[in-house]
Design a protein around this nucleic acid. Structure first.
Length: 156
DNA sequence: GCCAACGTTGGC
DNA sequence: GCCAACGTTGGC
């Protein structure tokens, strides 16, 4: 059984892990997500080959920095078991992991960042429900519709 | 560095 | 199960 390709937006702080870092390593486990909604999107929604908008957050020019793709099915985030990790979760166990992730593969870096400021100018076209531009949402992993994907790519 | 908005925790 | 307190996110 296969389903149509889906689209996503994933946020990362470039100081911690940027599109350039992804380009260097090629594939990266998307660890450290500690929000249930974001986890559920990775665990229940993502399929290998899905498109990913790589978003730089908490930086001088927040915005979409490039494209990636989902490169694995969901599996447990190793950092939850690691006492030395910032992402260690004492309530997680190998028998009952709490946090899941997918691998993300580099696709392409944009020639320029499509800034949040610019994306906001298209709030109406993107729709009220779009988590990136809707007020007060801090989701770090969110679904993107085919129409939103097309529009956002056209801004590059 | 500020702070609004939000999610999570834990006492009751 | 409520909800105040606390911690985090992330734009500005």
């Amino acid at each position: 059984m296969s389903t149509r390709k889906r689209y996503w937006l994933m946020k990362s702080e470039p100081d911690a892990f940027s599109i350039d870092d992804l380009q260097k390593v090629g594939v990266e486990p998307w660890n450290g997500v500690r929000n249930y909604q974001a986890r559920n999107f990775m665990r229940d929604g993502m399929q290998v080959g899905d498109g990913v908008l790589f978003y730089h957050s908490n930086c001088a020019v927040p915005g979409i920095a490039g494209l990636a793709r989902v490169a694995s099915k969901a599996y447990p985030d190793e950092t939850q078991f690691d006492r030395k990790s910032d992402y260690f979760d004492p309530k997680a166990s190998r028998e009952e992991p709490r946090w899941m992730l997918v691998d993300v593969a580099f696709e392409r870096k944009f020639d320029r960042v499509v800034a949040l400021e610019e994306i906001r100018r298209h709030t109406d076209a993107l729709g009220e429900g779009f988590a990136l531009t809707s007020k007060g949402t801090r989701l770090s992993v969110m679904p993107v519709t085919a129409a939103q994907w097309k529009l956002l790519l056209s801004l590059e």
